[in-house]
Design a protein around this nucleic acid. Structure first.
Lengths: 133, 133
DNA sequence: ATAATTGCAAATTTTTTGCAGGTTC
DNA sequence: GAACCTGCAAAAAATTTGCAATTAT
């Protein structure tokens, strides 16, 4: 559990209850889309409006508090900003697990004449628990 | 230049002018979003409707003729189905270049207990021609 | 006190749907 | 000729906007 207030202030955003609630929802879920965040936050804050969620997702994305993860065929999900990592996306249960970008992967991804800034790696397959069934 | 008619029939879709035009547009562009496809196809086929483009993108995606490439912050782009590859996305000019997934990369991406079906790798950075400026 | 943020309602944009007529195989 | 596909208009879904009231610093 992070200190969402500090996180917001460090990134030049006011710490409103709406924002901290959204961050808490994202943090708990790991990866979650706008509608699910809205439903989630409404539990504690029934008066929040979807427009506010949209506005805050935009501002927190702009200020690098959260990261947008575009999804194949569905709505984008959001995660807290953290070190770059790989997404293991299970095609059975839909869960997304993070895994580290190893030195080996970093090495392998060096491409001639391309100045790499940031990489986005999604691996689709079947996670360990779904394989057992 | 591929034979779009055969490509469609092989994948259980009727070869209409609308579909072959959409495929031609995608093939020429490499990676292109729905609106740009629509504008493109309208040049030759002024009567095509946007709804038809949407419907065909869905059917051709379902039947594995094309692939959707979700984009960060913008609308998804589409490409013809081909071997798995990496996208090098230039943050200056916006162009997307494809590059091969090497044996080395394949090796590096093996993760414990995850049965990998397909990988999606987008590398964001600056392409060679934009670096020269 | 100031500037930013909220919630609402309305506007806009994006995507999907139903259906009559036309096309492909 | 059967099944599928198109284009239109309308519907539905997703996102953005304007604004008065409220809140954070």
């Amino acid at each position: 559990m992070k200190n969402y207030i500090t996180l917001l202030k460090e990134n030049d955003l006011k710490a409103t209850i709406q924002r901290t609630s959204i961050l808490k929802s994202i943090d708990q879920a790991g990866h979650i889309n706008i509608d699910a965040i809205y439903e989630d936050v409404k539990e504690l804050h029934p008066t929040i409006s979807l427009a506010t969620v949209y506005k805050n997702i935009i501002s927190m994305k702009t200020n690098h508090v959260i990261i947008e993860v575009p999804m194949n065929g569905e709505k984008a999900k959001y995660e807290l900003k953290k070190e770059e990592h790989i997404h293991l996306i299970c095609q059975k249960c839909g869960k997304i697990k993070d895994t580290k970008i190893t030195k080996q992967i970093q090495q392998a991804l060096i491409v001639d004449n391309f100045k790499l800034n940031h990489s986005q790696i999604n691996l689709y397959g079947v996670c360990s628990s779904c394989q057992e069934r």
